[in-house]
Design a protein around this nucleic acid. Structure first.
Ligand SMILES: [Mn+2]
Ligand SMILES: [Mn+2]
Ligand SMILES: [Zn+2]
Ligand SMILES: [Zn+2]
Lengths: 146, 146
DNA sequence: CCCTTATTGAAAACGATTTTCAATTTCAAT
DNA sequence: ATTGAAATTGAAAATCGTTTTCAATAAGGG
């Protein structure tokens, strides 16, 4: 546990907003002026690999980071403002429970009342291994058994 | 309707896979050697603004594009392989109908049987206007009425 | 302390995308 | 067809978030 790593964790722990590497760097800089942007990137990459940090790439070229909470359990949900690029984590259960069906209209209404958010587009992404890569993995595993 | 635009549309129409600008450029290049990569980018940006093309930014730095089908209706769903970076559109209705509940386990099972896909993480994103931007928009609108 | 190894910050490199700009197309009006 | 203004193009340069390089520094077990 080194200074830059502790510093990054400190900033991330402050709240659960998504922040860019640069934003994190600037917040660090006040208390830890010696820590460089390079180390911020390195630490974030490291923490993401360890699964402690969630990395999110919006369409605007800069990645955002957030401390991953145990509550997520392999599933995450967020509100993304296409105007100001703000990203806010949200509780999927709350949204879906509120929405009678999974229909776009019901979800729209739910987000409206729960968060004041005006929904334009819903995106569902499933991350994992495609058929091919899974097959390849299994082959590799059975080879290693020999 | 110019040559580069027609060329890009031709490639995108060929199938509904997600492709990077470079991939589109190389496919173009065989039939339209005079069209430059710059125009491919410009055309994709244009088509995305018009809503005809869906742009998707994965975590790997290069954006992917796909012709948007009318069927999507403000909601899109995709399988993303974290190993080979392949992106495949999928039918959310089919997945959720198959899954008894919206629980992670049920969805995992559904994706397994429907697509042979091994789910690791589900991400739900709601794009739209946050409370602040919405308020700001309404103020602007009411000012313009004067 | 000492030594080995891991980590750091600054500067340079990287790579996808955007910008610039002079040359070429487009297309509506003749 | 001919024109000409306006839009579009391709190549080269610029941009910018991120990564790599590398010499200097910090870590930390003995
Ligand atoms: Mn931010
Ligand atoms: Mn591709
Ligand atoms: Zn906003
Ligand atoms: Zn794969």
């Amino acid at each position: 546990m080194t200074v830059p790593r502790q510093a990054v964790l400190e900033v991330l722990s402050a709240d659960d907003r998504y922040r860019s590497a640069e934003e994190i760097f600037f917040q660090l800089h006040e208390q830890y002026p010696a820590v460089g942007l390079t180390s911020v990137y390195r630490t974030l990459t490291l923490l993401a690999q360890m699964g402690l940090v969630e990395r999110f790439d919006m369409g605007d070229g800069k990645a955002r980071f957030r401390l991953r909470t145990g509550a997520e359990e392999g599933s995450s949900c967020r509100l993304i403002c296409t105007n100001c690029m703000k990203v806010e984590p949200c509780d999927q259960e709350a949204v879906e429970d509120q929405a009678a069906s999974g229909s776009m209209d019901d979800v729209t209404r739910s987000l409206e009342t729960e968060y004041g958010f005006q929904l334009r587009r819903r995106v569902v992404e499933y991350y994992g291994l495609c058929v091919d890569c899974r097959r390849r993995n299994e082959e590799k595993r059975s080879q290693e058994e020999n």
